[in-house]
Design a protein around this nucleic acid. Structure first.
Length: 687
DNA sequence: AATTCGTCAACCAAC
DNA sequence: TTGACGAATT
């Protein structure tokens, strides 16, 4: 039996209610992940086989967190047997297992973000509409449709103008052509992982029954971020057994742009009648000041489940508000404050710096580097979006599966080997006609005559790929060796070295290539750890669905200041938090003003940011911020007005405060003059 | 076929 | 600011 005495009564109830539908309403910092891991541990210790338990979450980070906690409680042996991961990875594994019924190619790849854009572009070209619509908007709309389980035809039938402002008939047309591109390239996209899994479960009663029997206990973390497609997957798996437990917090629903509805919690209760609801309200994370502020802010949202978060914490550092002249000044200010925190003996890992969007990170990274503080920036320009990394991975994909069309087109002429547009068209033409993969076409000798001059180059290429595909891949070390060969034998390294690549980007590329093989090995090792086997396809899936970026040497200790978006910080906590760019048009984001429910979602985002902090939080805004070169004037965020004034101090008054009693009470320190200063700075803007 | 140069748009969040 | 793309050049 697992020892549950570390849990409070509500947590314990949540952890021990195993049968039937359970909804755990878990406010920020109330020990949500803890409850999930104890619940799993409790279940396995009472004889439920670990491989009958599915635990899903929305993000990789949350999934990893869950995995680690369970492992600590139950040991690696049990943890290994659990089906634990993101929705996408779980659904993908169903598609791989039942590929035929799911109507997907036996060997399919997943189109990563960049690939998706390429395919949207191609779809647009087919219609001759290139340049008329923004690719990212089109793709977002397609994604939205898929998350609502709508086919192109459904979409056209609905034909009501969406928030994008683009004619729905046009959207449906692009969607349709985009789908054809996916088929043509034998790939599925992220949303298809869910979409096709739903169809698989819907259309195949036998498979559905098999899976319901296999996965008898379902658990979902971050349930408020579940979209309707994902909820449908759950519905099918839960069958009539209804052993499903979800954990969520409507106040932290910040992914509505991916189709999540924060009403989803209520929908759950309707879907599974007799749901047992457990509320976790004791916060173990934040100081009272921070919790008060967060509670007050979030009360401005209507339509939320009422919660009363409370905490025993006595810490009473006020929220520090700081106005800076520019983004550089803001960055320097943060760097300075970090220095003094480190000077007080705190660790870099105790500090988190949060921002609304990735582009705010750069000045701060630079300022911190200048004062010699180790940082790690999470997310952002995804490592896998870099050209050199995509090329590398395309080679890897092609070596593992020479039929991978997307990979083929990407690298057939990288580095340049004299294969141009004409030749590519010829290949594509033959491939289409003979229904072969393009690689198959250039590999087969009977087509040689079509490529007189390029034949040598193409032969070399196929020789290279087939040579590499001979490499054994049974251990992580093998995979690393293959990685080494890819950067050397395929000429990726030489290409960067020789071609007159500019300083900074050249260095970056060399660095990327340098770390890739070792990173690949690490990914394999983790995989072997969890599932005990090494499967090349699974490796590729993981890489595509992964958000892990290779660690640089200096991060080995793990002791660095963390920089990330607020979205990325959900579920994390830091003793000291900085939120920068708390400005109108940034937080709340300018687009949110025109989106329905936009401001409420931005407020939840702000709430998430506040509740990441355990001890102290600094909020900063600038009067001027440069964006794409030009500098524009800024106004403090409207959300400042929602924080009780007694809980804030203006940074310019900090020195006075510190000169007085070091730990003076917030209330007393807020003299009238200070308050008026804050008010002045907050009301000077246009709101 | 490959390189180079100029123009233009992106800057919201992630699997 | 960066990058991606397309036309023009070699």
């Amino acid at each position: 039996m697992i020892n549950l005495s570390d849990l409070n009564p509500e947590q314990r109830e949540a952890a021990t209610t195993v049968k039937g539908p359970v909804l755990i309403l878990a406010g920020a910092g109330t020990g949500k992940t803890r409850v999930i891991s104890y619940r799993i541990a409790h279940m396995t210790s009472t004889g439920i086989p670990a491989d009958a338990i599915v635990a899903l979450s929305f993000t990789n980070k949350a999934a990893r967190e869950m995995a680690e906690r369970v492992k600590a409680l139950t040991g690696a042996a049990v943890a290994k047997q659990l089906r634990l991961g993101t929705f996408h990875s779980f659904c993908l594994s169903m598609l791989r297992e039942f590929s035929e019924a799911a109507g997907v190619d036996r060997r399919f790849s997943i189109a990563a973000t960049g690939d998706q854009m390429d395919l949207v572009r191609k779809a647009l070209e087919e219609k001759g509409w290139q340049g008329t619509y923004a690719l990212d908007i089109l793709h977002a709309q397609i994604s939205r449709a898929k998350n609502m389980l709508l086919s192109p035809e459904d979409f056209r039938r609905m034909a009501s103008p969406g928030p994008s402002g683009i004619d729905p008939v046009v959207l449906a047309e692009v969607y349709d052509h985009y789908e054809r591109q996916l088929k043509l390239h034998r790939v599925i996209d992220f949303d298809d992982c869910i979409f096709k899994a739903v169809k698989l479960l819907q259309d195949h009663a036998d498979i559905r029954a098999t899976l319901q029997e296999r996965y008898r206990y379902l658990m979902v973390d971050e349930f408020q971020d579940t979209n309707s497609a994902q909820l449908t997957v759950l519905e099918h798996l839960a069958g009539t057994r209804h052993n499903i437990c979800v954990v969520g917090d409507d106040d932290q629903s910040i992914y509505s742009w991916r189709g999540a509805m924060f009403e989803t919690l209520e929908r759950f209760e309707r879907l599974f009648p007799g749901t047992k609801v457990v509320k976790l309200e004791q916060n173990y994370r934040c100081s009272n000041v921070i919790l008060d502020a967060a509670n007050t802010v979030i009360k401005n949202n209507s339509k939320r489940k009422e919660k009363a978060l409370w905490s025993k914490s006595k810490e009473a550092s006020p929220i520090v508000i700081s106005a800076l002249d520019s983004d550089e000044a803001e960055a320097r200010w943060i760097a300075e404050k970090c220095m003094s925190l480190l000077g007080e003996g705190h660790q870099p890992r105790d500090i988190g710096i949060l921002y609304r969007s990735n582009n705010l990170s750069r000045p701060i990274e630079m300022a911190l580097r200048e004062v010699g503080i180790a940082t790690k920036t999470y997310g952002g320009q995804n490592f896998f979006e870099r050209k050199e990394v995509k090329d590398f991975l395309a080679y890897l994909r092609l070596v593992i599966n020479s039929d991978d069309r997307m990979a083929f087109w990407r690298v057939v002429n990288v580095p340049a080997r004299g294969v141009g547009l004409k030749t590519l068209e010829k290949i594509e033409d033959i491939a289409k006609r003979l229904r072969k993969s393009p690689y198959g076409v250039i590999k087969a000798s009977e087509h040689r005559e079509h490529f007189q001059r390029q034949a040598t180059a193409l032969d070399k290429f196929t020789a290279l790929i087939s040579d590499l595909s001979q490499s054994g891949l049974s251990t992580p070390a093998d995979v690393e060796a293959l990685g080494q060969r890819i950067i050397k034998d395929c000429g990726l390294l030489d290409d960067v070295r020789q071609n007159n690549e500019q300083g900074a980007s050249r260095d970056r590329k060399l660095e990327s290539l340098r770390v890739l093989p070792a990173w690949l090995r690490k990914a394999c090792e983790e995989m072997v750890d969890e599932s005990g086997k090494l499967d090349a396809y699974e490796l590729l899936d993981r890489i595509t669905l992964s958000d892990q970026t290779p660690r640089k040497e200096e991060d080995k200790s793990g002791n660095h200041v963390s920089l990330m978006t607020i979205h990325g910080a959900k579920g994390l906590e830091f003793p000291y938090v900085f939120v920068c760019g708390v400005e109108e048009d940034v937080l709340p984001h300018k687009n949110s003003l025109v989106e329905s429910g936009g401001i409420a979602e931005e407020r939840r985002l702000f709430y998430v940011a506040l509740t990441r902090a355990k001890k102290r939080i600094h909020l900063s805004y600038t009067l001027e911020r440069s964006s794409h070169g030009r500098s524009t004037s800024r106004f403090p965020s409207r959300f400042f007005k929602e924080i009780p004034e007694t809980l804030m101090v203006h940074a310019s008054d900090m020195s006075k405060m510190e000169a007085g009693a070091a730990h003076a009470e917030v209330r007393k320190t807020n003299t009238l003059s200070q308050l008026s200063k804050i008010r002045e700075s907050l009301t000077s803007g246009k709101w």
